[in-house]
Design a protein around this nucleic acid. Structure first.
Length: 618
RNA sequence: GGGGACGUAGCUCAGUUGGUUAGAGCGCUGCCCUGUCACGGCAGAGGUCGCGGGUUCGAGCCCCGUCGUCCCCGCCA
């Protein structure tokens, strides 16, 4: 096959931009052959570029040479079509194409490049399996869906950049080759050639650097920052990912929230979604009590506390622990269930709880016993009140699945020293059943409006977590997170660690943690107190954070910030269920890049340069 | 580290209780076709059933191991 040279030919239009108003214009479009429809003396080529697809017509009578080239063209050949835009005759338009009103009548075709037989066609509706997609990622990325995702990602990033820039933030880059920062994850290491046996670490986040930028007086910083964590992957976790990272001097929590709500609103607007800030705010405690989790999925009704409906006598009669909470929740529109379906559901619930003491209480069965009818009714009333206000649901309709969970006699008040475990357990069941009935209630489906996106802020996280194995209190966040000033003043750092609240906050979208931030400690005395309460002596402090503690001693202003996962934002906005759909060259669950085949072994020479030797671990 | 699902043609999949020569759709190749847009018609090529071992007269199917992809737990403050 003889290929044509591009010469000085210039593209005049993008394929997707041609409209009826371009009729009679002489145009040059370039792109890939999406499909070829050969009718003998008449050939249609669908030419695709980033902007869309346009139909090019080749008529053997009008231009035999161009027709012959089109005959030779195959899927994904790169071509240039030179011709005239023609308004399609009535009846020949294709309303399903943006460019369906017109076609390009080609006088000339250039075959700029050919393509091997494809493992899969980017034009196909059926999607190949992920292994093949990732190996031939360049073909996968040609698909309209992927092009759309990356355009969205670009628009989101641009909106965030513009918003933060317009609000006084400076974009400053921090190093990729650095030393371990105090995040909890495993580091990716880079060996130093110049310093044998020494390693740089790739940043898990720019945390320390951005705090130092505050010490440096930059006042407001942001960065679209790549971060690296050497931990096992999930659908929503890749070893390298991108954070929208920001920090500001003299912050109030509310100020950070305002900035984040601002850039998210701007970002979602690029996708046609009008968010209405301010977002819902709740404390960690409220989140646990109402949703049983610190990242509430507010697309479904919250849990309902039914504790007040049970008198001590009723608890006695129903063999329910006296002091523990009784919780319930509703799965909307789960549908009327047969006896068999109901029994298997109850079995499933009991299996979910195992032998922790929690049990399903059947409202329908309560009603069969005159003694318990008032209880059943009052439970239903509590449900009705809760659902009527916010959700406009009527639990008496029979379509809603009402789940009531009671602690049986002997249920422990604490589980792993956690007094809130019942809330968490029931909250877990709520999410499980929400997933199970997702097809029925449809509340996880996107409708293309702001209602699809339920944001909330979770505040006042506990400062410490009890580590039962090590029998010590651990910092729940990185150790530069400031405690509430009230808790410091009240001396709780020493007397009541479990009650100390951190000035830390998460932003949550549809049950996914999008980001996490805090007001930092800027005073040396408070920092020392935190380290002391964590049982970290001065030598250890110095070894781990010495340079940073030094910096804090030279006039550190109050400061704080947040970081949001850009990939996750785009994923949810795109309605995708894996980060791989919004990361151009992602890695597999085993952290392999199937396209470039990384990681690989390296040459002996490379290892020698780095003073490294590999050994087989036994 | 642990649990689960999957692996059959280039792609998406079917394949009966273990029984002859492993099928379909799409794609691909050739020929025909001037209004298709998932074009159509005719003909054709294409398979180490992921890999290794075992059971059996006989394995795509059963068993063991192994590799790969995906999902989850652990892990990721």
């Amino acid at each position: 096959m003889t290929l044509d040279f591009l010469g000085n030919l210039q593209r005049t239009h993008m394929c997707g931009d041609l409209r009826a108003s371009n009729a009679h214009e002489h145009v040059v479009v370039m792109g890939w052959v999406n499909r070829r429809r050969d009718h003998g003396n008449l050939i249609f080529l669908d030419i695709r570029d980033r902007s869309g697809i346009t139909q090019v017509v080749l008529d053997k009578e009008l231009s035999p040479e161009a027709h012959a080239k089109a005959e030779a063209a195959r899927s994904e050949y790169v071509v240039a079509a030179i011709g005239t835009v023609r308004r399609r005759e009535a009846g020949l338009e294709n309303p399903r194409m943006d460019t369906g009103e017109i076609e390009v009548v080609a006088s000339e075709i250039l075959l700029l490049n050919e393509s091997k037989g494809l493992p899969f066609s980017p034009a196909d509706e059926a999607i190949a399996n992920e292994e093949v997609r990732l190996k031939y990622r360049y073909l996968d990325l040609r698909r309209v869906e992927m092009q759309k995702n990356f355009r969205l990602r670009h628009e989101v990033t641009r909106a965030v950049r513009n918003y933060l820039s317009d609000n006084g933030f400076l974009e400053i880059e921090t190093p990729f080759m650095t030393r371990s920062t105090p995040e909890g994850a495993r580091d990716y290491l880079v060996p130093s050639r110049v310093h044998p046996g020494h390693f740089y670490a790739l940043p898990q986040s720019p945390q320390i650097f951005k705090q130092i930028l505050m010490v440096s007086g930059f006042d407001k910083y942001f960065q679209i920052a790549r971060c690296f964590r050497d931990e096992d992957l999930r659908a929503d976790r890749q070893p390298e990912f991108t954070q929208i990272d920001l920090e500001t001097t003299f912050p109030q929590q509310s100020l950070i929230f305002k900035f984040v709500e601002g850039f998210l609103t701007a970002a979602f607007k690029t996708a046609g979604i009008e968010l209405k800030p301010p977002f819902v705010q709740m404390t960690y405690d409220e989140a646990i009590r109402n949703y049983g989790i610190d990242k509430p999925d507010m697309r479904l009704p919250a849990m309902v506390d039914l504790t007040a409906t049970l008198t001590p006598e009723l608890r006695e009669a129903l063999k329910i622990e006296q002091q523990l909470p009784v919780l319930g929740f509703v799965i909307p529109a789960a549908g009327v269930m047969s006896g068999t379906q109901k029994r298997s559901l109850v079995d499933e619930i009991r299996k979910f709880f195992g032998d922790c003491g929690l049990d399903y209480l059947d409202i329908a069965r309560l009603k069969t016993n005159a003694d318990f009818v008032p209880l059943a009714e009052s439970i239903q009333n509590v449900f009705a009140d809760a659902l009527d206000e916010e959700w406009g649901l009527n639990p008496a309709g029979g379509e809603e699945l009402m789940v009531v969970i009671t602690p049986k006699l002997g249920t422990p008040a604490m589980w792993n020293f956690d007094p809130q475990w019942i809330y968490k357990k029931v909250g877990g069941l709520r999410l499980e059943l929400a997933k199970k009935f997702a097809d029925k209630h449809g509340l996880h489906n996107q409708t293309g409006t702001a209602a699809d996106f339920k944001f909330c802020w979770v505040t006042d996280f506990p400062m410490y977590e009890w580590d039962e194995q090590a029998k010590v209190w651990q910092a729940a966040h990185h150790p530069f997170t400031s405690p509430h000033e009230d808790d410091i003043k009240a001396g709780r750092l020493t007397t009541d660690k479990g009650a100390v609240r951190a000035l830390a906050y998460d932003i949550v979208l549809n049950g996914t943690e999008l980001g996490s931030g805090s007001i930092r400690i800027h005073r040396k005395d408070v920092q020392a107190e935190i380290f002391r309460s964590l049982g970290m002596d001065e030598a250890e402090q110095k070894a781990r954070f010495g340079f940073f503690l030094d910096a804090l001693e030279y006039g550190t202003p109050p400061h704080g910030g947040i970081a949001l996962g850009l990939d996750r934002i785009v994923m949810i906005l795109a309605g995708a269920s894996s980060l791989r759909e919004v990361i151009a060259f992602p890695k597999t669950a085993k952290a392999i890049d199937l396209m470039v085949d990384a990681p690989t072994e390296v040459s002996d020479q490379q290892l020698r340069d780095l003073s490294l030797r590999t050994v087989t671990r036994t």
